[in-house]
Simulated assay, not measured.
Amino acid sequence: MTKFPHGWLRASGRRSARMIIGTAIAALTLGAMAAPASAAGPTISTVAAGYAHTCVIRTDGALLCSGSNDSGQLGDGTNGASAGKTSPVRVGTATTWAGIDAGTNYNCAIRTDATLWCWGKNFRGQLGDGTTTNRNVPTQVGTATNWASVSAGDSHTCATRTDGTLWCWGFNRLGQLGTDPSSVYYATTPLQVGTATTWAGVTTGYAHTCATRTNGSLWCWGDSSAGQLGTGSLSYSTTPAQVGTATTWSTVAAGYAFTCATRTDGTLWCWGENGYGQLGSNTTYQTAPLQVGTNTTWSSVSAGFNTACATRTNATLWCWGNNMAGQIGDGTTTNRNAPTQVGTATTWTSNVAVTYHTCGLRTGGSLWCWGNNLSGQLGDGTTTNRSTPAQTTI
């Protein structure tokens, strides 16, 4: 569940979220040169949020995770109900991590050598290692060394390669892998989606997938029971279906049963389920893109479990939708059906990950988290929920 910009090759997370290898490598290099805003040592270059865990990549290329660890999603070699961590723990000793996305109970990440690694829950083959065995340490997906971006959903994963091809694996009950579920109910290794070589980025929701192509067009497939494919239909699609005719899509993020996206003109659009106001408007579910307000300065968007967040060109951060755990960050637990500004800071970057908790990076590489913290996913050493951003030092 991530967000991605058109022309990556990104997507998200579920963050986005969420991975252009060249960009990630540049972030590691530039980050190492920049002086941290608030503390000595490495700052953060990337953040990803799962259902109840968080992972970050530091500017020195190290990977750390905190929160729930029931399926081994922290990647530290342990797993179980009592194996969670309220402070970040190091994932191995590698310092070559370039990008990461978090699924509900698992993660997938790319290294600077363009290899792909996944770990955590694997009940439907979402780790792509040819098995359905959970993994508590990163496990390589095949032998390819040309992965460009990855997006982890609930129980399916999709990723692009540098040759413009798109691959998906995991659960396929509603066609979210881009192929007929009657022939492939789930896949434990990557399956290519069609034959196109113009995919630019991909984002996975609970049971649907959306991706952009290099011409700025947007395509979605899988579950559309709430209209989350944006094609005007409530029926699922087993192959990519184009969303309208626009060729100006910029960043796209698939949430639980909804999707939000920005266009190159700075407008913001959402569609799908709207029970919590996650479409940014007071309306029913939508089967086609609905513009959120009239603002034309939106720069990126992230989507999670019925909550969305977006940044504007002035580096402000806005969130809306489900706020049961304070994940909107406005100091309340009141659901919002319109974008609500998170504090007054004007230093937010586009790297924001949202589920039932939210984490975002500010310029200088500082990490701020808020929302649900029952499993220690905010990484602050406690299990106390927060309804406003608090800085996490890693």
Rank of each mutant, 00 (worst) to 15 (best):
A11C: 14
R14I: 13
I21V: 15
I21K: 06
I21H: 09
T23D: 15
T23F: 08
I25F: 03
P36C: 15
A37I: 12
A39I: 10
T43N: 10
I44R: 10
T46D: 15
A49N: 14
A52S: 15
T54A: 06
T59P: 00
L64M: 11
L64F: 12
C65L: 00
S71G: 07
G72K: 01
G75Q: 05
D76P: 07
N79G: 09
G80W: 07
G84V: 04
G84T: 08
S87H: 07
P88Y: 09
A98V: 10
A98T: 11
A102I: 03
N107G: 00
N107P: 01
A109Q: 03
A109K: 00
T112L: 01
T112D: 11
D113A: 02
L116S: 04
D129A: 01
T132Y: 02
N136G: 05
N146V: 04
S149L: 11
S149Q: 11
V150Y: 04
T157Q: 01
T165S: 15
L166W: 12
L166I: 12
N172P: 09
R173C: 04
G175Y: 08
L177S: 11
T179D: 12
V184G: 00
Q192F: 02
G201Q: 07
V202I: 12
T203R: 01
G205F: 01
Y206T: 13
T209K: 11
T212E: 13
T214Y: 03
G216I: 07
S217L: 07
S217M: 08
S217F: 08
S224E: 05
S225G: 14
L229D: 09
T231G: 00
G232V: 04
T238W: 11
T239N: 03
V243S: 08
A246T: 02
A253M: 09
A257H: 11
F258C: 03
T259R: 11
T267F: 13
L268C: 05
E273N: 15
S281C: 07
T284K: 07
T287N: 13
T287E: 02
A288P: 02
L290H: 12
G293I: 01
W298R: 12
V301E: 04
V301L: 04
S302V: 11
F305Q: 09
T311H: 06
N314L: 06
L317Y: 01
G321F: 04
N323K: 07
M324Q: 14
M324A: 14
I328F: 05
G329R: 10
T334E: 08
N335D: 15
T340N: 08
T344H: 03
A345L: 12
T349P: 02
A353G: 06
Y356D: 13
L361G: 09
G364S: 10
S366T: 15
W368H: 13
W370H: 09
N372D: 13
G376D: 05
L378S: 03
G379F: 05
G379E: 12
D380V: 05
G381P: 03
T382M: 09
T383E: 02
R386S: 01
R386Y: 01
A390S: 13
Q391W: 06
